[in-house]
Design a protein around this nucleic acid. Structure first.
Length: 545
RNA sequence: GCGCCCGUAGCUCAGGGGACAGAGCAGCGGACUUCUAAUCCGCCGGUCGCAGGUUCGAAUCCUGCCGGGCGCGCCA
């Protein structure tokens, strides 16, 4: 339970004892202004109508009923806020819970039905670009946060290694491959070909392995083989980059398997039999407007092929049948308009309304020297995720990606990420961790050896640090509930600030046994939370810097 | 035109209906004989896009405008 929840419980008890009323919605918060207490509640104001009395008067009675051992000082302020300061005993008690829990503090054991989290889901037609990097960083961290908050999570990557895109990829490789032998490949549309340097690399690899064999084959068959070869190559490249970015997946789901198993056909059949479709202009339409979509959508084209919607619905039905309580998809801004039609299809299939949900990740703009780096392949301009990792490293890249809300377009400032790396926020947080590690090295003991906080008062800087530490469980819960990652780095920076301030004013290794022990306890607790939080972001917590 | 997202300090961004709106960067000025100065302290800096409304109370909720992004295909 978070400290805040515990306090809300105490306030509820005080309200009951003072007024005889049982309230369920009790709001407790950490005021911005430390002069307004460690925590404050607005119960007297918020429930003024229920009490039918002067809020200040009621607030006074509630304040008087608060447990004196828990609360050191209480005051009624403004129109009827109750501000209170926790006792040293209450703070030390919770800090001891933190120390004994270690990195499990604020976390829960996963339980209940699992959540399926699908992200990145790039098709194997080329390397991951910077936008995918944001998806990977957000998706992976979100998975870690959800798991830490007690949800079972399965991470899934959906891809399609067949179809027209892949055929084009094969043709692009064939063209470059032919060039190696001074020949020209008969391509259908030269403008449609993929152009990156990786195409040449795949072509060279193919030539190394097979020599001129593809030139001797029937061209269509050669393109088929090269397509498969190229898609494999790209998929390996993608997996390598993901691994490098510390982003593991439980399942790589191939769209083709849905066709092979007949699931695509079955889903369309089921919709047709349910009477949710009609034929028009030779195509089969889903009556998605009956389920909240703006317009009806085509499921089967007049040429007999399926639109992307058919396999997408089959895929999500498949997730449902695999027993997930919920499927959360992380999509790019260019798919922002699609959730309603998928949701409509799933409702027609009889799935519950809250099964399917989408988080849209907005675009990334790379900024260098105050100007946008265009996604062109010009020299010096990198665009792939791999190149970004080369340039700034995994820690910086991941931290930057999740530092701002995924719902907002972001500017990735390379100058800040690379050149001014010393003042980069990720180092600020890591440095606090390294500083603490250094103290423990000097003290000759491990942070995990400290399991409790000796009696005594806290200095103001210590108090603020403790209060910040006790905020961690709430941050986790709220981030998971809102499916937001950015509160974590924002919190870690606030925590690092509180620690650096404490460190500047108070020396830890002072010789005085009890005092030193108390301060080491604060250090151990801070180190634990910093490490735990950084782990959620997939960022290292260094012992030295 | 319709839908989704965004508009907060010079720049990048936080802000769970509450009490004088915050941080980092940039700028200026201070602090190392001490456990790491990748740090700390101070100063400078804001009509929270605009206008209404709901509320005891709005950056936060509602409506309408203005500005920006992304969608709006029998492409995936």
């Amino acid at each position: 339970m978070s400290m805040e929840a515990r306090i809300a419980e105490e306030v509820r008890r005080a309200v009951r004892s003072a007024t005889g009323l049982e309230l369920d919605g009790v709001h407790v918060e950490r005021p911005n202004d430390p002069g307004h207490g460690d925590y404050a509640t607005n119960v007297a104001l918020a429930h003024a109508r229920t009490f039918r009395r002067n809020p200040r008067e009621v607030a006074g009675e509630i304040a008087g009923a608060l447990d004196a051992a828990f609360v050191e000082k209480v005051e009624v302020a403004g129109p009827g806020f109750i501000n209170f300061w926790l006792s040293a005993g209450a703070l030390a008690g919770e800090l001891t819970v933190l120390l004994r829990s270690g990195e499990a503090y604020g976390r829960r054991e996963p339980s209940g039905k699992p959540v399926n989290l699908e992200f990145v889901s790039a098709n194997p037609t080329g390397p991951l670009h910077v936008g995918h990097g944001r998806h990977a960083a957000y998706g992976d961290s979100l998975a870690r946060i959800l798991a830490a908050a007690g949800r079972k999570v399965s991470r899934e990557f959906y891809f399609n290694d067949g179809g027209n895109q892949i055929r084009l990829l094969g043709e692009s490789v064939a063209a470059r491959y032919a060039e190696l032998y001074g020949r020209e490949w008969p391509v259908s549309d030269p403008d449609a070909l993929y152009k990156g340097e990786y195409i040449a690399e795949i072509a060279r690899t193919a030539a190394d392995r097979a020599g001129e064999r593809y030139l001797e084959m029937e061209p269509a068959a050669a393109v088929r083989e090269l397509s498969e070869f190229a898609a494999d190559w790209c998929m390996r490249d993608i997996r390598r980059t993901l691994k490098r970015a510390r982003t593991p997946f439980d399942i790589f789901f191939n769209e083709r398997s849905l066709y092979d198993s007949g699931e695509v056909e079955r889903v369309v059949e089921r919709l047709r039999e349910g009477g949710y479709t009609y034929e028009r202009d030779g195509a089969l339409w889903l009556r998605s407007t009956d389920f909240g979509d703006d317009k009806d959508r085509v499921l089967v084209k007049s040429d007999g092929g399926y639109t992307y919607m058919a396999p997408d619905l089959a895929y999500h039905l498949n997730k449902w049948e695999r027993g997930f309580a919920r499927a959360v998809d992380i999509w790019g801004a260019d798919h922002a308009g699609y959730p309603p039609r998928i949701r409509a299809g799933l409702l027609a299939l009889g799935l519950p309304e809250d099964f399917f949900d989408v988080e849209i990740v907005r675009l990334v703009k790379l900024m260098r020297e105050g100007r946008q780096v265009k996604a062109s392949k010009r020299a010096g301009n990198f665009v792939t995720f791999d190149e970004l990792l080369d340039e700034v490293g995994v820690d910086v890249a991941r931290y930057f990606f999740v530092r701002s809300s995924h719902r907002t377009e972001m500017n990735f400032d390379l100058d800040l990420a690379v050149r001014q790396s010393d003042e980069n926020p990720v180092y600020y947080v890591q440095y606090a961790h390294a500083r603490i590690a250094s103290i423990f090295r000097r003290a000759g003991l491990g942070p995990e050896e400290i399991r409790e906080v000796p009696e005594g008062e806290f200095a103001p800087e210590e108090r603020l640090l403790v209060l910040e530490l006790l905020d961690y469980p709430r941050i986790l819960e709220s981030a998971a509930a809102r499916r937001e990652v950015h509160p974590v780095p924002i919190y870690l920076e606030a925590l690092a600030t509180k620690f650096h301030q404490f460190y500047t004013v108070h020396r830890v290794l002072v010789g005085d046994e009890a005092l030193q022990r108390r301060r080491l306890a604060l250090c151990a607790a801070t180190k634990t939370v910093l490490k735990s939080g950084l782990e959620l972001l997939g960022v290292e917590a260094p012992e030295r810097m």
